[in-house]
Write a protein that binds this DNA or RNA. Structure first.
Lengths: 345, 345
DNA sequence: CTGAAAGCGCTTACAG
DNA sequence: CTGAAAGCGCTTACAG
């Protein structure tokens, strides 16, 4: 039974509730002796602060809202793992919410999170991170939020990303280095900045190597397996088939592998396939997909960190500093779905 | 700005806070006129009840805890989708938590959920649903909880499952019907009841068809892709290879497909492969995996339903009724990873 | 470094 | 069917 409350500890320790409260919140200005005594008693009595009371009295809820489009997504899962891990050590809890399709519903979901649940901060996963109305709402309500891989209004909040452009550039160059000349690309969802960046990186790598590819080599996908399937079918039915396909995420790359198998093409002998993200899926199919490792768990931890670190109190409308941009390191992950003649790392 | 509170509405409507509170909680004993007037004003003012205040004053937190072992799991993701969907319409929120490996940490996580966050109810996913200490704790603290596919202490709580035994039996019989005689099985994690049930169903189907299989056809996995990989390698290197492999979940079945490909075996010509669960993965690899569709989203919705439906107040130690067992329908899903000569549905 | 008072925004339990 | 009072368990802001 943990009906122990602050007052019980206070009485037992012979101090005021305030002192106990201070000890529980690691307030430095408590005498070492008092602190120790109170801590000991609190532990013995298995005291746990009531989060609702704490929330009501203070301005902190100890909740972080995490908003994604579909929870059933390997990208989201991987992120979630990092976020949960970080929360376990910081006393915060994650309220996960899906905000699907309808823009109005998305706004409603977020309003609920900030007005009802009153989260201390919000993490917006793509493509939610790119909805102007959401950004405007959070800014005008002065809510702390961190966006993952956003594309718009970059000064509005902290955001975390990798250098998608550079990674895509490197991926493409690596393919070129390994002898590929007919490299196709499946673009990701148009609602995400990362899609554009990756596409651009691919394009520029071709250009800087004086490679021309036919326009049919560019396919528009939307990051789903299904879209990858359709794109891959078209690509691999071309008379002048590509000898390498770079898909903007692993889901679509997995689809390309499937289509290659259906058509009895050897991967990577007949066609090299590269994905992006390095989600669980990349190593769950055969051959394992060459991809770009995005440190999603680390990104999640950083997001929680930003949101839970108390700010130096400052007027809300203060100009934001440029350190709101957090670019983490990616890593090329060469596996069996692509030919790796050079640099067999 | 939504700093509107109960009192503001009360003043504007010229009634007491209690009346507003009653209207917000759909208390039937409020006059129709009053109700309408109050509702209207509350809407106009964009009133949202403060969840923390509500929680502190009443005994409900409007939070449901969902505890899984690894969030990064297609089974968990699929369940999550259903749970979130249901929550959106019921005013509840999901607090997701991972409880990994260490039993003591698992207990600590759950204690935190019930003592600190004070969730109204808890959903335990396998294998957490099978930890006796957890079940005992929740029972002794008189916390509402629903378990998914538990194996122990079945009278301790509501639980939701499918008939794993029957499903496995049918899967195996279907394979037999389609001409397979050398059917291997990869058992799931020993910490889950479903593994035993599926194994037993497989065994009994063989027996009832007078089929003998060598002991090497039984492999112990643990539901991970990795374990499936190891098991599949052993199975497909046997001199007397199986002509069908029934893995206890999709992850392991996907691994079998990978190994078959590595060994240049044709699926399903050389070996039929069947999984279980019908998670995203089953249709993300090629060939798509034949499997058993488990209505995980529906199971999630039911769990939330059970937890959020107000109970008829009754003394806690009352004998539980047998209706705590909820068995949902599964469905055989025949796809391209298995031969389907008969019954091409 | 420590404490007494007031209040966060609701609901419970009791009247009428 | 409606309301006045008290309190949920903490923290803020102010004293000392």
């Amino acid at each position: 039974m943990s009906k122990v409350k602050l007052q019980d500890i206070a009485i037992k320790a012979g101090v005021s509730m305030m002192t106990v409260s201070r000890v529980m919140n690691n307030d430095p200005k408590v005498g070492a002796k008092t602190r120790e005594k109170v801590s000991k008693i609190a532990n013995e009595m298995h005291y746990k602060p009531n989060i609702a009371a704490r929330h009501l009295a203070s301005s902190r809820s100890y909740f972080i809202g995490l908003v994604c489009e579909y929870a059933n997504y390997s990208y989201v899962s991987k992120f979630l793992v990092g976020a949960l891990r970080k929360c376990r050590t910081s006393g915060y809890h994650i309220i996960l919410d899906e905000a699907t399709s309808h823009r109005e519903k998305t706004i409603a979901t977020i309003k609920d999170l900030i007005y009802v649940t009153k989260v201390d901060g919000l993490i917006l996963l793509p493509p939610i991170s790119n909805i102007p109305e959401v950004v405007d709402l959070l800014v005008s309500e002065n809510i702390d939020f961190v966006r993952i891989a956003p594309d718009i209004n970059l000064t509005a909040s902290h955001y975390i990303c990798i250098d998608d452009y550079q990674a895509a550039f490197e991926v493409t160059e690596k393919l070129i280095l390994n002898g590929h000349k007919r490299i196709a690309h499946i673009i990701g969802s148009p609602s995400q900045g990362a899609s554009r960046m990756r596409y651009q990186g691919y394009l520029d790598a071709l250009r800087s190597n004086q490679l021309m590819i036919p326009p049919e080599y560019i396919e528009q996908g939307d990051f789903t397996y299904k879209s990858g399937l359709d794109a891959a079918k078209r690509l691999l039915e071309l008379t002048n088939k590509p000898d390498a396909i770079f898909a903007a995420n692993d889901e679509m790359a997995a689809a390309v592998v499937s289509v290659a198998h259906m058509k009895h093409l050897d991967v990577p002998e007949d066609v090299s396939i590269v994905g992006f993200d390095d989600t669980e899926l990349a190593t769950t199919i055969w051959p394992n997909i060459s991809t770009v490792t995005q440190p999603l768990e680390e990104m999640a931890e950083l997001a929680i960190d930003i949101l839970t670190t108390p700010k130096t109190p400052s007027p809300p409308k203060k100009p934001k500093m440029s350190s709101m941009r957090h670019v983490l390191e990616y890593q090329l992950q060469l596996r069996d779905s692509s030919k790796n003649n050079v640099n067999l790392t």
